[in-house]
């Protein structure tokens, strides 16, 4: 599904931003052990990256996701629960954390903390949950006004960058709304 109108500026900046965001998310997640941050914050940052992609590319950003959001949520929760329960099998307590210090050649001492797995679980869960919500909205929008979904959000921004084909899209949006959804719910109401 192709969107009628792409903003070059947005697409270009998102292309640059997304890798940075993912990197920042990884850093935030792992520094969360001793400093502000953690899986939740990191997950939100990745989710923000996905939302940016969606703003730039429209619904195909969501269609292109390699993993189903709900699978992520399930996997994240599974991982968190597994890390929580694992200490029981080695005689510890639920949620107990173990710290190993490894000597990695050329890097030096690396501290490995078992509770980082918990953070990773939270990370996956948050990414999955937020993208899941996004996907649900996209689905709902698709059902109401196919094709022009992405632009409906964008159009709340500056309205003067409309290319001629943007007008076509607008006309179609207006038509679709008047015939299918006269009450003006869905994308129209956002403007």
């Amino acid at each position: 599904m192709s969107r009628p109108r792409d903003s070059v500026i947005l697409t270009t900046s998102v292309n640059g931003l997304v890798p940075v965001l993912v990197l920042v998310a990884v850093v935030v997640t792992f520094r969360g052990h001793n400093a502000p941050g953690g899986g939740f914050a990191g997950g939100l940052i990745v989710a923000a990256a996905v939302i940016l992609r969606y703003l730039a590319d429209g619904p195909r950003a969501v269609d292109r996701l390699p993993v189903q959001p709900m699978t992520l949520v399930g996997a994240g929760l599974c991982l968190a629960v597994a890390v929580a329960v694992a200490p029981l099998f080695v005689g510890g307590q639920v949620l107990e954390s173990y710290i190993w210090t490894l000597d990695v050649p050329a890097v030096g001492k690396v501290k490995v903390v078992s509770s980082a797995g918990f953070d990773l679980g939270v990370f996956l869960l948050v990414v999955g949950a937020v993208t899941g919500m996004l996907a649900a909205f996209v689905e709902a929008d698709d059902a109401e006004a196919p094709d022009v979904v992405g632009s409906a959000i964008l159009e709340s921004g500056p309205a003067d960058d409309r290319a001629p084909d943007g007008r076509v899209a607008d006309g179609r949006l207006a038509d679709g709304r008047s015939s299918a959804d006269p009450t003006g719910g869905g994308p129209g109401s956002r403007r």
């Binding site: 699978t71 929760l77 599974c78 629960v81 329960v85």
Partner: peptide
Amino acid sequence: MALCIVVPLGGAAVSLALH
């Protein structure tokens, strides 16, 4: 006690993965 909370949560996790 902790398992009373963890077991249903774990069940939720697995059943979500089995979406």
